[in-house]
Simulated scan of single mutants.
Amino acid sequence: MFDTATTALLRAVLDEVCESVSHREIGARTHVASKILEAATKGETSPESLRQVGRAALSRAPTMWR
Rank of each mutant, 00 (worst) to 15 (best):
M1E: 05
F2R: 01
F2I: 01
D3T: 01
T4M: 08
T4F: 13
A5G: 01
A5I: 08
A5D: 06
T7N: 05
T7F: 07
A8H: 05
A8P: 05
R11W: 04
A12Q: 00
V13Y: 09
V13A: 09
L14W: 04
L14N: 09
L14G: 08
D15K: 14
E16T: 13
E16F: 09
V17H: 10
C18N: 14
C18Y: 03
V21K: 03
S22R: 14
H23R: 15
R24N: 05
G27Y: 09
A28C: 05
A28V: 02
R29A: 05
T30L: 07
H31W: 14
H31Y: 08
H31I: 02
H31C: 07
K35G: 01
I36Q: 04
I36L: 11
L37D: 14
L37T: 00
E38G: 12
E38H: 15
E38T: 00
E38C: 15
A39C: 04
A40D: 01
A40I: 05
T41C: 11
T41I: 12
E44Q: 11
T45H: 08
T45E: 07
P47R: 14
E48F: 07
S49I: 09
L50R: 02
R51G: 04
Q52F: 07
Q52L: 13
Q52R: 11
V53L: 12
V53A: 04
R55P: 02
A56S: 14
A56D: 15
A57H: 11
A57E: 08
S59W: 10
R60T: 10
R60E: 06
P62M: 15
P62F: 08
P62Y: 02
T63A: 10
T63Q: 11
M64G: 02
M64R: 15
W65P: 04
R66F: 04
R66V: 15
R66K: 11
